[in-house]
Write a protein that binds this DNA or RNA. Sequence first.
RNA 1: CGGGACGUGGCGCAGCUUGGUAGCGCACCCGCUUUGGGAGCGGGGGGUCGCAGGUUCAAAUCCUGUCGUCCCGACCA
Length: 468
Amino acid sequence: MARVLTPQAEDFPRWYQDVIAKAELAENGPVRGSQVIRPTGWAIWERMVAEVDLRIKDAGAENASFPLLIPQSYLQREAEHVEGFAPELAVVTIGGGKELDEPAVIRPTSETVIGEFMAKWVQSYRDLPLLLNQWANVLRWEKRTRLFLRSSEFHWQEGHTAHATKDDARAYARRILHDVYEDFMVNVLAIPVVVGRKTVRERFAGATDTYTLEGLMRDGKALQMGTSHELGQNFAKAFDIGFLGGDGQQHHAWTTSWGVSTRMVGGLIMAHGDDNGLRVPPALAPVQAYVIVVKDGEGVAETAAQLHEELKAAGVRVKLDTRTDIPFGRRAVDAELRGYPVRIELGPRDLKEGNVTIARRVDGSKTPVAVGAVAKAVVEALEADQKSLHDAALAYREAHTADAATLAEAIEAAGDGFARLPWADCGVEGENEANAKGVSVRCLVRADGSVPDSEDEAGLVAYLARSY
RNA sequence: CGGGACGUGGCGCAGCUUGGUAGCGCACCCGCUUUGGGAGCGGGGGGUCGCAGGUUCAAAUCCUGUCGUCCCGACCA
């Protein structure tokens, strides 16, 4: 077979670009750092949106929409926040041909505008918690961009909540972290993640606590797949989000923010993809089953249409391909590039036996199945492949996670995956030293794997890795 | 923003050293033959060589600048 993609082992970054180009997921836009997400890529994102949105609503948050343009002065109200974002802001200074009295920044994130409105909407402790989310695009003038992983403009979901107490805010930030993000990543994306706490150095600008979910890509580098922050009372004070408590006193609210972005598409590609292209977990896949007519013949088109309907009725997301004017090999390779989990191949040869061929993307297997048994076989295959994709990713991560006794050892081990090192043996100095060598502390976790309340807790373990 | 590489039809590249006005593979269109892993043969369309200057009778080839892309590093979802 002709070589379609650069093999991962030969040049991983090149492989990544090849997959995106050949599977027609996305390409660069005309302005540097911008990206065009093509239908195949956007369909994947839409599925992510659907699954995450469902979980966000289960967690009680409501969707709303806030403006793209934010008065520049808003950003300046929270000292660390401005400092963190100032270098990457795009600022609109002219509108309708006239210089604006106050420049407006294109949102890099919406803590500030949303804070302004929360202040209006929250008066009493009875107005809390206020649980908001918006699906939006944001813009950060990135210096070095990569499709999906880091583009200037990207799409995401940003949740913003206000609570009466610190404990309630913390509980909610953690709830999102586990019940929305971790659940989605593990059960839908089939990507095992290390869930932990960011060090002060890696914390979000303006947050008091930042939590993260770190995935391991097939080149041994870590990817931050999502974050959830406790903002303490920083933004509440800056925007005067105050409320009258049951005690008759005025209090500042405690706020949180949390987000996942189109970066997850990049994570999906790099966590599961192989030398034949993308492998999309069935639970996520926009196209789970691909009915493909290999060759025309007696009753072939009819059976294909019938299977298409049957699978649809069985709740499978299915696509029918009857384009016999395009060689079969090309269509099969395309389907593999796009990572469709299951292909149902049929032509005269199969039908003569009363069979079709079920080809599975995960392991490349092909099995003849009786026409009448297709729906059941497909559903079973989808379920099994969801699991095997996850198990393979988990096995990969375990094989690429090393326990290190010293910082030097950890930096060495981080060349090929996660290195675990007691935080006590690393510390801020160790973190700086590792950073100088291209290795960062991805997060801190407790010995039992749970998420710490503070980085000063005893017995914490640091996960170090090279990262995207 | 620092270091390196590179910009030539949609994609991948050759041509540049030794200036003379553009070529190959894939893709695309038409026809026939094909169709069980990116089909074969024949015919055809498409680029002025990232952009802007300069040198020259003449520039894809030389010089300057600029923009962009990719890789590595500093910063981020």
